[in-house]
Design a protein around this nucleic acid. Structure first.
Lengths: 248, 248
DNA sequence: CGTAAATTTGAGCCCCTTCAAGTTAAGTGG
DNA sequence: CCACTTAACTTGAAGGGGCTCAAATTTACG
């Protein structure tokens, strides 16, 4: 079992939970057939490293289930998370054979991997994959730029509120709770991972979470289970446009 | 002349200085012909706003000459630059009709604009444009992530050194000076623009530039003309891997 | 129940910001 | 050509937000 634990039996693309959002979203059934042939599943335990920066990558992949992080590290150990990978997100870059970032599973993680060479060949011949990948990459670029604003200009309190709002919003769409009422979710990240995401120390993260709790913006059960009694109130704390934008 | 100053006569794609690096880089001559029909040039003076965030965008464009910035602003005025647009860089997003960021010319700027609808149609039919755009977007995403590390984890001194190194390196490739010896260039940005890029105040930028000058890392003539006597030394100050990477 | 990891909390300090003033540089009109 | 104006930049002094170092507390788990 030890050796086999990160190998999974084959799943039919038609039954895949990320079928309509992943890089394969636009593929026709004949294209899916080709993908079926080059794909394989791998699973990782929480905390396991999926890829080390600089490693040779002979595959690209989609996150099927679980959460992973993309991080960059300086020589002296300073670490910055540069991406949070959720189900349907894409890992790896066609045309590059060495990983640029560390990829780490923060929960149990299942990935749908494609052997790189066949995948690249397919990208050349079928536009649907490249089109979808472009769309996803543009979305990621927008997310990265939003994060640049957070890292460069927001206060610690605003940073925490922003992170909580993002997680809350994501969970709200999944659980279809009324997004302006009470929202409940579990933090998928440790305080240290949050610090690495927000460009803070873990102590500051802890202090600001305590402060938000003290001020009634959030409620905590244990360390990870969060209740947001008033989403509007949390959004006020992020520093972002409140109205959500007639134009946005 | 006032009304006409931002309109330019037609330039043949074959003679275009960014022909081999822009979004059109992979196009065949028949594809270029199609682009010729939907393109037009516009120029802007230094300081002029090209697009306001939220504006309706009926075109996408390539920077032909000059430098522009992409910035995001919070309600209270805090601003963060999220991109620096150099010749051959692409502006706008196919499939989106409202600008997500402010675009401002920092020098005299010439752009090659494509009417959006025809451009999008062409992307559907000719893969070369989409392929190149994907490549460029992935590069931008990498740049944005490198910037996240800078914003989140670097000190003010390291931030300044990193910015100078990027500009120096870019100018070095253009002027083919020996990249490990003396490098000379002009800063294309004001202190305030640098501050907005680096997530600092303009006072801190000024102080750190003075400090680097005092320490002999750079020499200044006037406010904008910079000489780097020892590029290696400057790179040491950035906090990045010195060796440049056997693996990188 | 015991150990280690995750988290919280405290105290002091330092880097960067804020506020303020002074200096340099680049026009502009007389 | 020079006074005037304004934007860009530099420098100083003081304060604060987040960091560092340290210890206590909670939680997870064998």
């Amino acid at each position: 079992m030890a050796l086999q634990e990160n190998v999974r039996t084959h799943i039919d693309c038609g039954d895949c939970p990320i079928r309509h959002r992943a890089v394969c979203a636009r593929c026709e059934s004949d294209e899916l057939k080709l993908l079926e042939e080059m794909k394989y599943y791998r699973t990782y335990e929480a905390g396991q490293t999926v890829i080390w920066s600089g490693d040779k990558m002979d595959f690209v992949a989609s996150v099927v289930e679980g959460i992973a992080t993309l991080t960059q590290t300086m020589e002296d150990g300073r670490t910055q998370m540069v991406g949070l990978l959720l189900p349907s997100d894409f890992v790896g870059r066609p045309g590059r054979d060495q990983a640029a970032y560390d990829v780490t599973a923060t929960t149990r993680l299942t990935m749908c991997c494609f052997r790189k060479k066949p995948f690249e060949d397919m990208m050349m011949n079928t536009p649907h994959i490249g089109q979808r990948l472009l769309e996803m990459t543009l979305d990621e670029l927008d997310a990265a730029r939003e994060w640049m604003l957070l890292l460069g200009r927001k206060t610690a309190r605003e940073k925490i509120a922003s992170l909580l709002a993002i997680i809350a919003r994501r969970d709200a769409t999944l659980k279809l709770s009324n997004s302006r009422g009470q929202v409940v979710f579990d933090l998928p990240l440790t305080r240290e991972a949050m610090a690495d995401y927000l460009g803070l120390t873990l102590e500051t993260v802890s202090r600001q979470i305590s402060a938000l709790k003290r001020d009634g913006v959030i409620e905590l059960e244990g360390k990870r289970h969060v209740t947001v009694p008033d989403m509007e109130r949390l959004l006020d704390e992020t520093g972002d446009d409140t109205d959500g934008g007639v134009f946005a």
